[in-house]
Design a protein around this nucleic acid. Structure first.
Lengths: 199, 199
DNA sequence: AATTGTGAACCTCTTCACAGCT
DNA sequence: AGCTGTGAAGAGGTTCACAATT
């Protein structure tokens, strides 16, 4: 869904105002039936014989994904990944602005990261009572990730984006999405390894 | 598989030398049958009545994933994400070292990024004739990603890790893994949006 | 007694194919 | 005529349950 949204934005920028499931499928490297199934699950957005209106479809998907809302995002871990994320344009473009950064390093606390204040994790409690925190991004080492997650779960955060390379244990009403770059590069390693083995 | 590998490393560090599919499943938040199916696909690594030897299993998975080999990785795009990746410890730990960075910005060319030289994309041809490039990481804007991908495909690169938020079109013998952080955060947005709607 | 490895059942996601709109 | 929306068929992946093994 998210991927359709992005492709539609690009199509709109290029002045395309109508698109068929066939063409959209080609862009996404999937089948046209898949596109129609995905979209029809949420409603009837297309016109038979014509296709989908790019602008209308984009808005409808945006609404489904809740992109019309502004979510308050916090980040834990002002390391390499954390710093990159505070200035990541794709997040900003979709309306995900990072309000606050938490870190454990006393040298960093009180400073800023791309104009976002860095607080101590101990201040999270106080912060969360004054400010909304819808989504927390965890960009700390694996050894600290579960503890950090627990801290913010206890403060009522229901959605986590986890960059630490472990599987977090969470309550039933909490959702975690993992962003594990090592997993992906290792699957490339697997592919190359096997390809060469069969040559 | 990759996730098992990481968990096994942590178990070994903690002095655990044997583990059952049940316990490993618990760590990964999956079922024990799933663990056994995954592992048995590649061979019989366990001992009935006992479980799996952590050290042996780790080595066997490492071999399957090709982690005993050293892969030569190149990076295109010395932006926020690119810079973070050149110093990303998880890659280094698994043996993925970035040898070279390519960028289009004349101001960056000739400089270094965490001690890795930054070359112009025009020099990629020359570079690739003298050095191996097994995996290319694409960390450029969406508008440039396909072109960059084509350039390196033509130079014979068969594996890409793509951080640009588009679906790359590649030849049949080439594999692309996408690392699209916006997709994940948007799925969190979707979750929160719907949860609140049903409250 | 404990735990693996695996056929069979089950479930979920994908593709096919075509009726029904525009 | 062209393209969507969707039931039915098919493929792929997950779980069950138990014989085999240590």
């Amino acid at each position: 869904m998210s991927q359709y949204y992005r492709s539609l934005n690009r199509l709109i920028d290029n002045g395309v105002d109508t698109i068929s499931s066939e063409k959209l499928a080609h862009i996404e490297n999937i089948t046209s039936a898949q596109v129609r199934k995905d979209l029809s699950f949420f409603g009837s957005f297309g016109k038979r014989g014509l296709g989908y209106n790019t602008l209308k479809l984009k808005d409808q998907i945006g609404e489904i994904l809740g992109l019309d809302k502004k979510w308050h995002v916090g980040l834990v871990g002002a390391g390499n990944i954390g710093r990159a994320l505070t200035d990541y344009n794709e997040f900003k473009k979709q309306g995900f602005f990072i309000d606050v950064v938490f870190d454990a390093d006393p040298a960093k606390i009180g400073t800023q990261c791309n104009n976002i204040p860095i607080l101590s994790v101990a201040e999270a409690d106080k912060y969360s009572h004054k400010n909304k925190l819808d989504i927390m991004i965890i960009a700390v080492p694996a050894s600290a990730a579960q503890q950090v997650c627990n801290t913010f779960m206890d403060l009522g955060v229901k959605a986590f984006l986890n960059f630490a390379p472990i599987s977090l244990q969470v309550k039933d009403d909490v959702v975690v999405k993992n962003e594990n770059m090592s997993v992906e590069i290792e699957s490339l390693s697997f592919f190359l390894h096997n390809k060469n083995g069969n040559d």
